Simulated scan of single mutants.
Amino acid sequence: MAQPARLEGGAEPSAARLIPIQRLAQGGRWRVEAMRAHSEPCLLWFTRGQGRITIGGVTRGYGPHNAILIPAGVMHGFEAGPQTHGMVLFFGRNSGIDLPMTVQHLRIREASKQAELSAIFEAIQRELGSDKANAARAAQHHLGLLGVWLERQVEAASDEAPRPTASKRLAARFTQLLERDFRTGLGVADLAESLGVTPTHLSRACRETCGRSASDLLQDRRLFEARRLLADTELPIKEISRSLGFTSPAYFSRAFQHRAGKTPSAFRRAG
């Protein structure tokens, strides 16, 4: 069975980590741009650059001083060019921090609020990297303050948030189902049937919300997992193929090469 999504090689960490966005992409832009989900919530804090981010099947733009909270299990990917700077805070599994349960995209326009968030990030980073007594407890308290800061910003922005369209609601339901079942070998027709819509209607909704078909989102998610397993584990290719629901290693190799430009073996050697 496929292993849970993780950030880097080795077992997925369970404690909080604060990592520069540029470092996330060091192993290949696919590590941030391809569709994936984490088993813990994370907060993206963009301080410079701009691009597009797709969360739950909905694409939107991001720019400097955007804070984006992505709950655990929510499929996402974002552009990270040379001018993109900022930090990603992974809260860890079962952190105990009270956080909003839905995706939040906050555009922090006030300089005072930007300074508040930057100060909290600096305090968390300082304690996470400290060997002083009770540093872990201090970091936990700062994480709690961050949770309060987020709640206040969400409450302040709630009146401005538009109601999601029917297409956005369907795309969100589809990506939730996709994240659960992408390893099973089910196709778009099967997932559309589970959602009570036709494949054509589902793909139309996805194209409207993120400019991509439902099939493209499904294959992108499977390809990310295939790349991750090839790069970060020593699982045999035939086992990776089986774990992702492909009918045979040969079919997996053809599908991988079509989208990645390399065979699974060549991709692993290049890593």
Rank of each mutant, 00 (worst) to 15 (best):
A231K: 09
F224S: 10
R48W: 07
Q140V: 01
G77F: 07
Q104P: 00
L202S: 08
Q176S: 14
E155M: 09
T54E: 06
G51K: 05
R180G: 05
P4D: 05
R48D: 14
F224Y: 15
G57F: 11
I108N: 06
G61M: 10
K113E: 11
G56K: 03
G147S: 00
I108R: 11
Q153T: 01
D159G: 14
S158V: 11
E193L: 12
F121H: 05
T102I: 11
Q50W: 02
R207V: 07
G245C: 10
F246E: 00
D131A: 12
A72Q: 05
L106C: 03
I53M: 07
P71L: 09
I53K: 01
E234T: 12
D98N: 07
H105K: 03
G56T: 01
G245Q: 10
T47H: 02
F224G: 08
R29L: 14
P162I: 03
P82N: 06
F91T: 10
G129P: 04
R93L: 09
D98I: 08
Q22K: 12
S167D: 14
F121A: 02
A136G: 04
E79G: 08
E179K: 13
E110Q: 15
K132D: 13
H258W: 10
E208Y: 08
S215V: 08
D232V: 02
V148A: 11
A250Y: 15
A136L: 09
L143W: 01
P249G: 06
